[in-house]
Write a protein that binds this DNA or RNA. Structure first.
Length: 487
RNA sequence: GGCGCCAUCGUCUAGGGGCCCAGGACGCCGCCCUUUCAAGGCGGAGAUCGCGGGUUCGAAUCCCGCUGGCGCUACCA
């Protein structure tokens, strides 16, 4: 069997991490079996439609490196890949179901539906459609009312009143539901658009989808879908209800938990490779110990039966750690390019553009193991680029010299003398300053801190002597003298 | 209210009757390394496997009940 999976998001806003995780599983499954991964846009809800969302959807997949074989922007043999352009198919399916006696027109007004539900809720009855239009008599009356008011109708599925429906879920196993608890759900809305239930089934069939992965909030709807498959004579695809991604408080991941959009993570400086790795590991694992897994290995080893059933809380801390791992493991050329691009965005306008690639290439090895997020890069190395340093005398003196600024001043003066004539290399600088500390009977660390702030304007920096070496003799001495002048 | 899903360290997870008085990772704590901060190394705390029954010589693992969390119950997906 050809494995064909799809990611079928609704263009209603910014792509959500939870959806993307499911998309990732779809992608991995398709690639694992050498099949196809399809992108389909489910824009059947005109009230929530956001014209800007499509681009976001596309961009999020591109950023994560999840490539699809068929989709709205690239076409494919089963297009169009946008549901609003496939209305005829849903309408035909609905018509066929009516003809078969598996569905019927419902002319009830939403006001009546609301009233019915309100009454049911009040009397502690399960709220659901009372099936007025399921009977010819009721339907005639409702239709007359509707036509008098100029309203249209919906098409509802005629759910059998008794019996069970069962289906096999690839993750949960066999599931059985009593039909008596279901109602006659809407398949086609009065605006002629289908609901999800009809639309996805018609499209999956048309697009030869073999596996459906979706959030487990769909489980309660699955029996309806089985009914439609049966009525339409369609062999259901493999269905896998995957656990959802939750916020730290155990509720649905949402805005108030922080970033839910990939773009926010991208902007904070997470690497797509890290997000990919992390996301693939929420709800799935390779074994009992492997955390860092390449895309190729995910594809090689991915399988539905290692997806867990329970929901997962999104753990940004672990993502952040993982991002650091990916930064540390990145090839140097790529690292330089990544850092440079980020610096280009983060460094103040006063720094000349383009950012000096050679300089970044020299700095990158010094800071790579300190950086967990790209957003931290500038903070670690802006002093290499900036001209004027801003720091307070307190910062300069630190704990060691706060009580004796004069000693600090003379120490810096001696430092200038000690290093000015020597060779300007890491080793030479360190040797001179260590000797000086000895000579002054000052702790090496204290002297280094003093020089560090003078040279970089910060108390926390990349390794001092390497930094000074990169800074160069002129700029470094100039900064030390500026520090002396402050004291 | 009805229907359903889920349940192992704070979090992500391994485990599928004896290998588990439960392994790994993040985070946390300590030590080492060390010019700051990291990274790295070593070590530690942290889970009576939600609770109660049952099956079994033996249960985190199988069964039942309960509890809890979550979801669905729309002309949203």
């Amino acid at each position: 069997m050809d494995v064909r999976t799809r990611y079928a998001p609704s263009p209603t806003g910014v792509p959500h991490l939870g959806n993307l995780r499911t998309a990732l599983f779809d992608y991995l499954l398709a690639r694992h079996f050498g099949g196809q991964f399809i992108l389909r846009i489910e824009d059947t809800d005109r009230t929530r439609y956001d014209p800007n969302a499509l681009q976001g959807l596309l961009d999020s997949l591109t950023w994560l490196g999840i490539d699809y074989d068929e989709g709205p922007d690239i076409g494919g043999p089963f297009g169009p890949y946008v549901q609003s352009e496939r209305l005829a198919g849903y309408q035909a399916a609905a018509a066929r179901l009516i003809e078969q006696g598996d569905a019927y027109e419902c002319w009830c007004s939403s006001e009546r539906l609301d009233a019915v539900r309100a009454e049911q809720t009040r009397t502690k009855q399960p709220p659901r459609y009372d099936r007025r239009c399921r009977e010819p008599q009721g339907q005639r009356e409702a239709r007359a009312e509707a036509e008098a008011e100029g309203r249209g109708h919906v098409v509802r599925f005629k759910t059998p009143l008794t019996g069970d429906v069962s289906f096999q879920d690839a993750i949960h196993g066999e599931m059985t539901f009593a039909l008596a608890t279901l109602d006659d759900f809407v398949m086609l809305k009065s605006d002629g658009y289908p609901t999800y239930h009809l639309a996805y089934i018609v499209d999956d069939e048309a697009m030869r989808i073999s596996h459906v992965l979706r959030g487990d909030e769909w489980i309660p709807s699955a029996p309806r879908h089985m009914l439609i498959y049966r009525a339409l004579g369609i062999e259901p695809p493999v269905i896998a209800h995957v656990p959802r991604v939750l916020g730290p408080d155990g509720s649905k991941l949402s805005k108030r938990h922080g970033a839910t959009s990939v773009f926010e993570y991208r902007d904070q400086g997470f690497l797509p490779e890290a997000v990919f790795n992390f996301l693939a590991l929420v709800g799935w694992s390779l074994d009992d110990k492997t955390e860092i897994i390449s895309r190729a290995d995910f594809i090689e080893h991915f399988s539905l039966d290692r997806i867990v059933k329970n929901p997962a809380v999104f753990n940004v801390e672990k993502l952040t750690w993982m991002n650091g791992v990916y930064i540390r493991d990145m090839p140097e050329a790529q690292l330089t390019e990544t850092f440079a691009a980020r610096l280009d965005a983060d460094l103040p306008a006063s720094v000349a553009r383009p950012i000096d690639r050679d300089l970044v290439a020299r700095i990158a090895p010094l800071i790579r193991e300190r950086v967990k997020l790209l957003s931290e890069v500038a903070g670690y190395c802006d002093f290499f680029f900036a001209e004027g340093l801003t720091y307070s005398t307190d910062e300069l003196l630190g704990k060691a010299f706060t009580a004796r600024p004069d000693d600090a001043k003379s120490a810096l003066e001696s430092a200038v003398i000690a290093i000015d004539g020597g060779t300007w290399t890491h080793d030479a600088l360190e040797a001179s300053l260590r000797a000086l500390a000895d000579e002054l009977s000052v702790k090496a660390g204290d002297l280094f801190s003093l020089v560090r702030v003078a040279a970089t304007g910060k108390r926390v920096t990349p390794p001092l002597f390497e930094s000074m070496a990169i800074l160069g003799r002129e700029r470094c001495l100039e900064r030390l003298r500026a520090a002396i002048a402050k004291l």
